[in-house]
């Protein structure tokens, strides 16, 4: 395995690992809210933390999911024109887009680090309910999530540049088929 392939395996693996880890938060959100409903209607004692906890789980989950989505080419794009191009043409477009993306994500990253740091500095708390939880942990998720997307964006850029320059490499993602349809159902349809 050459250096490029090894890098791509590691980077894709990182995004994959984070995505798989945070996917459990879906069950976390369901549990917290079902617990709240049970507490409110069956035990007659609503919690003060369920709404804000589920909101924080939601925020962290969706932000951190960005890199996983990019790794699986799941960010919506229109292929009406792009789809007409050959591989080199597509790589040309991707090079421009992910270069600009790199710049923009870097700005985003720097601003979000500052945003989180300021929240830590004043030990910011939420003022919505009487629970008043700390806000800095959830604000810290932003730079982490943006950083992860930034890293995956670099891998996408590298792929585009190599194809554009005609440098052959083994793309570990090449054999993966991305589908919007449940593979098990698709198998059933094929039978």
């Amino acid at each position: 395995m050459n250096l490029v392939t090894r890098y791509l395996v590691i980077q894709d693996g990182l995004s994959e690992y984070v995505g798989r880890a945070i996917s459990w938060l879906t069950l976390g959100m369901i549990s917290v809210l079902v617990l709240e409903i049970v507490a409110r209607y069956f035990l007659n004692s609503p919690t003060i933390w369920a709404h804000e906890t589920s909101t924080m789980l939601y925020g962290a989950f969706c932000m951190l999911a960005g890199a996983y989505t990019l790794r699986h080419r799941g960010h919506v794009r229109s292929e009406v024109i792009y789809g007409q191009f050959g591989p080199r043409g597509k790589a040309f477009c991707d090079t421009i887009i992910f270069t600009l993306g790199l710049v923009v994500l870097w700005i985003f990253f720097k601003m979000s680090v500052e945003f989180a740091a300021e929240s830590w500095a004043v030990r910011e708390y939420s003022n919505k309910s009487i629970w008043q939880p700390a806000v800095y942990p959830i604000k810290t998720v932003i730079p982490v999530a943006v950083g992860l997307v930034l890293l995956q964006n670099i891998a996408e850029l590298l792929r585009a540049v190599l194809v554009l320059l005609g440098i052959p490499f083994d793309d570990p993602r090449e054999s993966e088929v991305e589908t919007d349809i449940d593979p098990e159902l698709l198998d059933a349809a094929k039978k």
Binding site: E118, V122, E124, Y125, N127
Partner: peptide
């Protein structure tokens, strides 16, 4: 002040 009480101490 309620809007920024988490950031500015006297807000509330």
């Amino acid at each position: 002040g309620g809007y920024w009480s988490g950031q500015v101490d006297i807000g509330n």
